[in-house]
Design a binder for these strands. Sequence first.
RNA 1: GAGGGUGUAGCUCAGUCGGUAGAGCAGCGGCCUUUUAAGCCGUAGGUCCGGGGUUCGAGUCCCCGCGCCCUCACCA
Length: 526
Amino acid sequence: MSEEHHKLESQRRENRGQVEAAGLYPYGLREDGLLTSRQVRDLHSDEADTRAAELTKAAKEGGPAGEDPRALVRFAGRVMLLRDNGKLLWLTLRDHEGDLQVAVSQKDCAPEGFALAKCTDLGDVVIAHGRVMKTRTGEITVWASALKPAAKCLVPPPEKHSGLQDVELRYRQRYVDLWANPETMQAARLRSRIVSRVRRFMEERGYLEVETPMLQTLAGGAAARPFVTHMNALDIKLFMRIAPELYLKRLLVGGMPRVFEINRNFRNEGLDKQHNPEFTMLEAYHAFGDVETVMELTEGIVRDAAAFVAGERAAPAGHAPPAEVVLPFGDLSINYSRPFDRVTYGQLFEKAWGFSMRDAQQVRDALLRLHPGLAARVNTMDHWLMVNELFEEKAERLVDPSRPTFITDYPAAISPLTRPKRDDPTLADRADLFIAGMEVAPHYTELNDPDVQEAKFREQLQGVSAEKNAEEQTFRTFDHDFVRALKVGMPPAGGMGLGIDRLVMLLTDQRTIRDVLLFPMMRPEV
RNA sequence: GAGGGUGUAGCUCAGUCGGUAGAGCAGCGGCCUUUUAAGCCGUAGGUCCGGGGUUCGAGUCCCCGCGCCCUCACCA
């Protein structure tokens, strides 16, 4: 079974044989009562060290042997550094919280433990039992009375000073990156705690967390290309969901007043710094609310999460928390304490182009100047499509990236699934939150008139068949059950979707989505 | 999709004008009971991403391909 191994691996296999030869099982056994490196550090006491020294001295002079006052601990970690002085070995072990030194001396450690230390390789996981003390040079150290194997590392570890630098290897072998580069572990833990914090924020405001299908017979709720799969038992085509929206709304129909889901969506599209094919979204619906209700919700979530991260950073205890929460993102300093800016789509448009988005003639002329090639089509093109073209060209960029900003009052024509404003049906009750140029969260007053919804579905289908894309036709389907649900009656509601990955990027100053995902999508290895 | 960068030992990286493939760390053999990237002595380690070309000679120059990173575009 064993083929040829790399030389360095073979040597490690031989060392594993030596562990067995010492009568130990290289892959370890259950160990209760383990402390983390931080807990061990906290248990150290200078006073205990002093008393221990006095006891030793007294014992030498023939006095009674007292109980060692220093804490006795069990600690497990991966061997990061190993200094072999012959009869005394120094091991630097690392766990998820940090590094801790362990000393294994021939005199004080059980013989199997000393033998183990002698054949340990960098990267092995070991368990140390011992007293917490401080060395002459002031380093908190576990002076081992026993050392046990927990796992053999057969693979040569990364270079000990620089860690694992190769970006591709870091993503592909996250299991190495996590222990070789402590920042990676920190980032992963911070993400987890941010998500947990967001969850608690929602729950405290009466939102019920639910889980809705990820395998769907129709991939609705957003305009995106889905992943297609097949279910054997029923012999049907299934789609990975692109959004949970239509299911969450069904729950409002059923009478749930406030619901949210934090989970994965799948979109069969390109990869870049802001897009991974599977990504995590918080989607929330608030019955008897509207777009304003959920804008306030998002602002609260983002501010709370930012304050949490800022608090984590201002680690030194005793310092008063800063009056304002300001977090860096690249060159930007983003202030999350101030009320988020608001600007209407129309205002931004006018600021960018110098005329109203309702001025059909000027819109057409400007678009022609921008894209002369469109001359033939410009007379038949929808006015609002042209407006949006111009908007994306110049207006979006006018938003100050360092100020979280809601863009409100989008044209209804480009927001097909949103309820038009009561006082101006050409505008939609929709607002998008932008931070640092990233679209972080859209907000809507949800459509709940079944007849309008049905018409929109139909319109969308026609829009697709009008284009030549036959493939799209196969997954843009009319969701009859959703219309049926609306016929039963869905209360008016506000809904929003917050990109969790992007939120974490912003709060943790990571420029690429891959650095906030533990296992980003990668091309398969050859 | 276009442009730029990059690929050398297990890891991190040098490699000049085209002239025998290098360092540090890790490894291996020794010595060492207070080290801190431990130290000292000795030693081994290469498909220079792949293929083709130019040349007496290619890690280096040229062409094709592949992976990864960055920028832009597209898609949403």
